[in-house]
Design a protein around this nucleic acid. Sequence first.
DNA 1: TCGTGATGGTAAAAGGTTTTATCAGATTCT
DNA 2: AGAATCTGATAAAACCTTTTACCATCACGA
Lengths: 336, 336
Amino acid sequence: MTDRDTRRRTIHDVAKAARVSISTASNALNGTGRTNVETRERVKRVAKDIGFRPNALARSLLTKRSHAIGMLTNDTYGRLTLPMAAGVSEVLVDQGLSVFLCATNNDPRLARLHLEALLDRQVDGIIFTATRLDLPPPVELTKLPVPVVYVFAEGPPDSISFVPDDIHGARLAVEHLKSLSRSRILHVTGPHDYLAVRRRAEAYRESVGSGAEILYGDWSEEWGHSAIDEVFARKGPRPDAIFCGNDEIARGVIEALRDIGVRVPEDVAVVGFDNWEVISKQTRPPLTTIDMQLKELGHQAGLAILELAKGEEVAPGTNRLPCSLVVRQSCGSMTR
Amino acid sequence: MTDRDTRRRTIHDVAKAARVSISTASNALNGTGRTNVETRERVKRVAKDIGFRPNALARSLLTKRSHAIGMLTNDTYGRLTLPMAAGVSEVLVDQGLSVFLCATNNDPRLARLHLEALLDRQVDGIIFTATRLDLPPPVELTKLPVPVVYVFAEGPPDSISFVPDDIHGARLAVEHLKSLSRSRILHVTGPHDYLAVRRRAEAYRESVGSGAEILYGDWSEEWGHSAIDEVFARKGPRPDAIFCGNDEIARGVIEALRDIGVRVPEDVAVVGFDNWEVISKQTRPPLTTIDMQLKELGHQAGLAILELAKGEEVAPGTNRLPCSLVVRQSCGSMTR
DNA sequence: TCGTGATGGTAAAAGGTTTTATCAGATTCT
DNA sequence: AGAATCTGATAAAACCTTTTACCATCACGA
C-alpha cells in the first residue's frame, strides 16, 4: 500500500489528468481564451474530481489583486467596531474578498506594524474604523498605494468616509418625543469634547427651540443617575421627556427616576442612543432608542472598497447615513 | 520633470542599486548563505534607502508559509469572540502573523465559503471559536491540511482546545461566598442544555454540599427578577447568597432584591459570571464576578497555533484555563 | 493552387522571492 | 608547485498561476 500524495493539487495535475497543456487547463477553468466546449467541460470535471483549488497566492502574485482587504480598528473591539466589521465582511465574502482584522489599540507602533504587514500582503484596500469621529488615525493613511475608506471616522478632505448622521438621529429622537406631546424635553449627554455629542446637542437645540437644556457628563449610568438627582432636586418646572446621549446614560436615568418615584413613561418619556441591546432591551421599561445602523455602515464601506479595489471611481466625501428609531416602551404608546 | 516610478520596489531594484546579484541581495537581507559583512551592510542600507519591502505573496508562495491564520467564529461577533480575537491577534502580530476574521453566523454555507477561501490562501492554521462549548462547528474541520485549534469550543478527541475551567470558576465563586460566612447559597443560572451550565452547577453542588438549590432559566435579567420573586415569595429559610450563571442574571437579581427591600450585600451577597463590564461595573452595588480570562484564552490559542504553524508539536487535549475572581462590592468586604 | 481566416491548442514569459548548486579566486597545506 | 580548502558571490531553478504570442490544422473562396 503506497502512501498517497498529500500535496495540494496544482493546475499541473489537472492538465496532466485531462491530457491538455497547462495553458489550456487555465483557459478552460477561467473561461478565458478559446477553448472547445468539450475539452472545457472535461477539464472542469477533472479539476473537480481531483479536488483542484487554485493557489490564491500564485494567482494574486500575477494578477496584482490579492482579493484581501485590511480593517484597521482603533479600539480593542468595542461594541461599535464589531457590527461594522460584520457588515463589511458580509458584503465582501460573496465577492471572494477576505478581511484581515487588525486591532491597533490606538498604539502608533502597533498601527504601523499592522499597516506594513497589510501593504506587504498587497491588500486591495484598507478600511479604517474608529470609536469616535474626531480622533486622527494613529498612523499616516494618506498617500498609501491602496485605497482607504473611513468608517465611523472622518478622514482628510476628499477622502471617502461613512458616518452615522448624528443630526438626523437626534432630530428623530426629539421629533418622536414631540409627536407624543412632550414639551419640556431635557438632553442628558456625554462629554462635550466629542464631536458627535456637539452635533447631536446642536440638532436637539434646534429642534426643541426655547426651553432647551443640555447637561454634559460622561458616558456612564452613574452620570444618568446624578443628572436626574440634580434636576429633580431643584425648584421650577420639571421635564416630561429626556433625550439621552447613549443607552447607558438612559439606563441610569430610568433607574434614578424609578428610585424617586417618577414613572416612565407616564410622567417622563426617555429616549436613548445606540441601541446597544444588552442595555436597551433590559431596562424597565425597555428603551426606545436611536440605532446608528452600524452594520449598514459596514455594508456601504465594504461596497465602496470593493469598487475602489476594482479600479472604479467612488465619489469622495463624507456619507452620513440616516439613523433609525427603535420604539420600545420607554416613551409610552404612540396613540395615547 | 519626469514622472517618477510609483511601482513598489523589488529585490531586483535593491540588487541593481547595490551592484550585486539578486541572490546576494536576498542572502544579505535574510542573513542566509555566506556574505561579506561589508556587502551585507551595503545591501541593507540600500534596501532601506529605496524603501524596499519584500512582497509577502511571492515569499509565501515559495516558502509555503503564508504567515496568516484564519479565525472562524460562530456568531456575529458577540462579547465572547472579541476579547478572544484580540488576544489571538495580540500574540501573533509581533511574530508577523496576520489574522483573517471570518464570521460564519453559524451558517454552513458561509462557513464553507470562508473555509475554502482560507485554504486557498494557504493559511498556516485555523482557530475556531464558538459561543458555547457544546455546539459542533458548522463545517467539517477534521482532516484539514492545516492545523486547527479550538477556543471556547471542544473539538473531536485528540484535537487541541482551550476552554475556561467552569468548574474552577464556580468553585471560586462559592468558596468566596463561604469565606464570607454565607451559608445558604442559591444558584440561579441559564438553560440546562448548556454544557457549561451543567458543569458549573455540578461544581456548585459539590462545593456547597447539602442545601444546594439550583434554578435553571435563560440568560436574561428578566429571569433574574422572576427567580428572586419566586424564591422570596415562598415560605421557609431564605438564601444569604446567590451565585448567578452570568452577569445579566445577576443584575436582574440585584435589582429584584432592591425592589423588595433586601439589601445587597448586607442581607444577600451576589456573585456573577462573565465579568462583562458594561454590566458588572454598572450594577448597584458593582458586581463581584468571575472572569473567564477570554483574552488569555486567545493568547494561549495564538501561541499554540504559532507552534503548530512552525511545524512543532503541541500536546493534544482540552486545556482548561483557570478563571479569576473579580471582587467588587456585591458581596461585602472580606473583613466583615 | 494559393491565400485568408477561423479554430483549438501550446510554449514560454512573467510575477517576486528563496534556495541549491556552482564557480572563480584567494589562502593554506603538503 | 600542486592540491586542497575556504570565501564570497552568482546563475538558475523552483513556487503556481495567468497571459501573450505563436503554431498547426482545417475550411473556404478565389
